[in-house]
Each structure stands twice: as C-alpha cells, then as structure tokens.
Amino acid sequence: MTEAELFFMYKGTYVLHGTHTPETLKYFEEFSFRPDDIIIATYPKSGTTWSQEIVPLIVSGGDPTCLQSPNWERVPWLEECQKFSLNLEERPSPRLFTTHVQYNMMPPSFFQVKPRVINVMRNPKDVFTSAFHYFEKASYHLNPGPQNEFLHKFLDGKVLHGSWFDHVKSWLNAEDKEHMMHISYEEMIMDLKDSVSRIAQFLEIPLDDEVIKNIADRCLFKNMRTNSSNFSMVPPEMNGVSKSEFMRKGITGDWKNQLTVAEAECFDAVYKDQMKDVKYKFAWD
C-alpha cells in the first residue's frame, strides 16, 4: 500500500480512506450540535484514549458502568465512519464526542451553538515518539520507515491529520474561549486528581472529593490497561495492534530515549520557529 492509497487530502490535512469517506465527511459538515454537547479535541497520540475514559466518568458522577461500551462507541469520533451506526441524534444529553480535526475545520453548527470543548495537548516530541512506535505496528497504516525520514514528515505536517503545530495553534487561538478548556497530557500525568477536578469544574459538574479521587485512581494508566473496553474501542481496521502496543507506556519524556541529539536539536529549531508567537505556557516548556 502506498501513501496515495492510504491517505487523501481533506481541507489541507491527510485523513484515512478507510475511516473518512465523502459520506462521513458530509455528515460531519452538516452535523447539528447542542449547546450541552462535550467535545474532546486532540491531535492523535496526545491522550485521546485517556480523556475518553476520564470525561465519561466525570459526566456520570463516577459510575463505572459508563465504560462498558467500547471507546469509539462511548465517545465517537465525529469525522469517522463508526458513528453511522450509533444514532447520535437520538442520544440523550450531554452527548460526548471526540475529534482530531483543527478548530477551523469544525462544522458551521459548532460555531453557532458553541458546545464545550476540552482540548488536550501533549509535548510534540512525545507525540512523535508514540506515533512512530504505533505506526510500526498498526496493520492499517504504512510503516513509518527510517526514524529521521518520519521525523521530517512529522515536522512538515505530512502525516495523518496534518501538522501538530497547526492543530495546537488552531485550538489555542479559538474564539469563544469561555467554552473551551486547554489541558496537557503532562498536567494530567503530574496531578491526575487535580486535572479531574478542573475538568469537572469546567463542565459545571459538582463532584465530591472522594468521587474525584476514585475517578483519578481508576484512570491511572496502569489501571486503564486492565479495562478491556479501552482496547476494544480500536476499530476493526486497526487490527494487528496488541493492547501493549496501543497503550504502550503512558509516560512523559520518552522522546529522550528515541531522538538522537541532532534530531532533538532539529525538532527544537522547528518548534521555536513555529511557536514563536504563541503566548500559552505549556507544561513541557
């Protein structure tokens, strides 16, 4: 399989033929949001699966039965094909969704209704590292090839869902900031209980301290790996990836074990240039 067979261009970013079709993208573009919808917006390999466990638990008041369905059904990706069988219009509020698209690519209804968004970001060096290992194993994807070659593709945005820099900046520069919460993978690693509390406050869901602690304990990486629904959420076309390969380490700073000194310096130079006008203080800076 070639890149041309695997990807196609949608509004300037690469998406997968298998999960993105003209029908699914038309559905996405015409989707009608509700004001109390909750959207988890992430660049791939930035804590999506983690967030898809944390947020439902918060919304349910800590009830673990909300996690019995697979993740792609529990918090579906709006732009992908699995949603067609889920009757999203009939779901009770608040509905939970996930998206990997940039802010400027969201449907017209999103800008009119202004649902709440939890934007989860991660150090791009760790995003690169996680993606490199995942693409080596996922049978639905091309092998990334030599690491240095894949690094330059990543830095140039010539990878699935485009540039990390464009994605992160699009959500950080979004309007209607009162409807949006930005949080990092690193913050969640450092203090998950505090992160759960902050997300609950943003969603205006009152939770007592014990419930917050229980949610945080349940969502520790070592405990998430025991929840089979977090692996069964992987759509059928992503077969060939074991649980240990999909949920690999769940740590920060693994890029130090992956990038050479020269590659890290190259990454830093591009990062400095791309993010020079961004005022947001990231946890990894």
Results as ranks from 00 to 15, higher is better:
residue 3 E to Y: 06
residue 6 L to I: 11
residue 6 L to Y: 05
residue 7 F to H: 03
residue 7 F to W: 13
residue 11 K to C: 09
residue 13 T to V: 15
residue 15 V to Y: 00
residue 18 G to T: 11
residue 19 T to F: 13
residue 28 F to S: 03
residue 37 D to V: 02
residue 37 D to K: 00
residue 37 D to W: 00
residue 38 I to E: 00
residue 43 Y to N: 02
residue 45 K to T: 03
residue 46 S to T: 04
residue 47 G to K: 00
residue 50 W to Y: 07
residue 52 Q to E: 11
residue 53 E to V: 06
residue 54 I to Y: 00
residue 58 I to S: 00
residue 64 P to G: 09
residue 64 P to L: 05
residue 68 Q to R: 14
residue 71 N to Q: 13
residue 74 R to L: 08
residue 75 V to W: 00
residue 76 P to L: 02
residue 79 E to R: 01
residue 82 Q to M: 09
residue 86 L to P: 01
residue 87 N to F: 07
residue 90 E to F: 06
residue 91 R to H: 06
residue 94 P to L: 06
residue 103 Y to D: 03
residue 113 V to K: 11
residue 115 P to R: 05
residue 116 R to D: 11
residue 122 R to P: 01
residue 127 V to C: 09
residue 127 V to H: 03
residue 127 V to D: 02
residue 128 F to N: 01
residue 135 F to P: 02
residue 137 K to V: 06
residue 137 K to S: 08
residue 137 K to T: 10
residue 139 S to V: 10
residue 144 P to D: 04
residue 146 P to K: 13
residue 146 P to G: 09
residue 147 Q to S: 10
residue 148 N to L: 07
residue 148 N to Q: 14
residue 151 L to P: 00
residue 154 F to W: 04
residue 155 L to N: 00
residue 159 V to T: 03
residue 165 F to R: 02
residue 165 F to A: 05
residue 167 H to W: 02
residue 169 K to S: 14
residue 175 E to S: 14
residue 176 D to L: 06
residue 177 K to T: 12
residue 177 K to S: 12
residue 183 I to T: 04
residue 185 Y to E: 01
residue 188 M to Y: 06
residue 192 L to E: 02
residue 192 L to V: 09
residue 194 D to M: 10
residue 198 R to F: 05
residue 201 Q to S: 07
residue 202 F to K: 03
residue 203 L to K: 06
residue 204 E to Y: 07
residue 205 I to M: 08
residue 205 I to N: 05
residue 207 L to A: 03
residue 212 I to G: 01
residue 216 A to L: 05
residue 216 A to G: 07
residue 220 L to M: 14
residue 222 K to R: 12
residue 229 S to N: 13
residue 233 M to K: 09
residue 234 V to D: 10
residue 234 V to Y: 12
residue 234 V to E: 07
residue 235 P to K: 04
residue 236 P to K: 14
residue 237 E to K: 12
residue 239 N to I: 13
residue 239 N to K: 13
residue 240 G to S: 09
residue 243 K to C: 12
residue 244 S to G: 12
residue 247 M to I: 11
residue 248 R to H: 14
residue 251 I to D: 11
residue 253 G to I: 14
residue 256 K to F: 10
residue 257 N to C: 08
residue 258 Q to D: 14
residue 261 V to Q: 15
residue 265 E to F: 11
residue 266 C to R: 09
residue 270 V to W: 08
residue 277 D to E: 13
residue 278 V to Y: 08
